[in-house]
Protein backbone atom coordinates (compact mmCIF):
# COMPACT_ATOMS: atom_id res chain seq x y z
CA UNK A 1 0.00 0.00 0.00
CA UNK A 2 1.12 3.56 -0.65
CA UNK A 3 1.31 6.01 2.25
CA UNK A 4 -1.99 7.53 1.15
CA UNK A 5 -3.66 4.11 1.03
CA UNK A 6 -2.24 3.21 4.44
CA UNK A 7 -3.54 6.44 5.89
CA UNK A 8 -7.03 5.81 4.49
CA UNK A 9 -6.88 2.19 5.66
CA UNK A 10 -6.02 3.28 9.20
CA UNK A 11 -8.84 5.80 9.26
CA UNK A 12 -11.38 3.31 7.85
CA UNK A 13 -10.27 0.77 10.45
CA UNK A 14 -10.84 3.29 13.21
CA UNK A 15 -14.30 4.21 11.87
CA UNK A 16 -15.17 0.53 11.50
CA UNK A 17 -14.32 -0.36 15.12
CA UNK A 18 -17.80 0.38 16.57
CA UNK A 19 -19.30 -2.01 13.99
CA UNK A 20 -16.64 -4.69 14.43
CA UNK A 21 -18.26 -6.43 17.37
CA UNK A 22 -16.37 -9.67 16.82
CA UNK A 23 -13.06 -7.78 16.75
CA UNK A 24 -12.08 -9.33 13.42
CA UNK A 25 -8.55 -8.37 12.42
CA UNK A 26 -8.78 -5.92 9.52
CA UNK A 27 -6.67 -6.34 6.40
CA UNK A 28 -6.94 -4.79 2.94
CA UNK A 29 -8.57 -7.99 1.65
CA UNK A 30 -11.11 -8.18 4.51
CA UNK A 31 -14.64 -8.38 3.11
CA UNK A 32 -16.43 -5.85 5.28
CA UNK A 33 -19.97 -7.29 5.40
CA UNK A 34 -19.04 -10.98 5.13
CA UNK A 35 -15.98 -11.23 7.37
CA UNK A 36 -17.35 -8.94 10.08
CA UNK A 37 -20.81 -10.58 9.74
CA UNK A 38 -22.55 -7.20 9.83
CA UNK A 39 -25.91 -6.52 8.20
CA UNK A 40 -26.68 -4.24 5.27
CA UNK A 41 -27.95 -1.40 7.46
CA UNK A 42 -24.76 -1.42 9.56
CA UNK A 43 -22.66 -1.29 6.39
CA UNK A 44 -24.62 1.80 5.27
CA UNK A 45 -24.26 3.36 8.72
CA UNK A 46 -20.50 2.76 8.61
CA UNK A 47 -20.28 4.31 5.14
CA UNK A 48 -22.11 7.37 6.46
CA UNK A 49 -19.32 7.80 9.04
CA UNK A 50 -16.78 7.52 6.21
CA UNK A 51 -18.67 10.15 4.19
CA UNK A 52 -18.69 12.52 7.13
CA UNK A 53 -15.05 12.03 7.97
CA UNK A 54 -13.80 12.55 4.41
CA UNK A 55 -16.51 15.12 3.59
CA UNK A 56 -17.64 13.27 0.48
CA UNK A 57 -20.72 11.49 -0.80
CA UNK A 58 -20.47 7.77 -1.46
CA UNK A 59 -23.74 6.97 -3.24
CA UNK A 60 -25.35 3.66 -2.28
CA UNK A 61 -25.02 2.48 -5.89
CA UNK A 62 -21.24 2.42 -5.47
CA UNK A 63 -21.53 0.00 -2.55
CA UNK A 64 -22.80 -2.91 -4.63
CA UNK A 65 -19.30 -3.14 -6.17
CA UNK A 66 -17.47 -2.37 -2.93
CA UNK A 67 -16.74 -5.43 -0.82
CA UNK A 68 -13.26 -5.29 0.68
CA UNK A 69 -11.37 -2.66 2.65
CA UNK A 70 -9.19 -2.24 -0.43
CA UNK A 71 -12.27 -1.59 -2.59
CA UNK A 72 -13.39 1.08 -0.16
CA UNK A 73 -9.92 2.66 -0.09
CA UNK A 74 -10.13 2.97 -3.89
CA UNK A 75 -13.59 4.55 -3.65
CA UNK A 76 -12.37 7.11 -1.10
CA UNK A 77 -9.27 7.89 -3.18
CA UNK A 78 -11.29 8.32 -6.38
CA UNK A 79 -13.87 10.56 -4.74
CA UNK A 80 -11.24 12.67 -2.95
CA UNK A 81 -9.87 13.68 -6.35
CA UNK A 82 -13.20 14.82 -7.77
Amino acid sequence: MTDDEQEIFDKLSELLQPFNEKQVELKPQTEIAVDLAIDSVSVMDFVMEVEDHFDMDIPLNVLSDTHTMKDLISVVQARKKT
Binding site: M44, M48, D57, P59, L60, N61
Partner: peptide, 11 residues
Protein backbone atom coordinates in the same frame (compact mmCIF):
# COMPACT_ATOMS: atom_id res chain seq x y z
CA UNK B 1 -37.76 1.56 -5.54
CA UNK B 2 -34.70 3.82 -5.51
CA UNK B 3 -32.51 0.94 -6.68
CA UNK B 4 -34.99 0.09 -9.43
CA UNK B 5 -34.97 3.70 -10.66
CA UNK B 6 -31.25 3.53 -11.45
CA UNK B 7 -30.80 6.99 -9.90
CA UNK B 8 -27.76 7.94 -7.85
CA UNK B 9 -28.74 7.30 -4.20
CA UNK B 10 -27.59 9.43 -1.30
CA UNK B 11 -28.67 8.49 2.22
Amino acid sequence: GCTLSGAQLVR
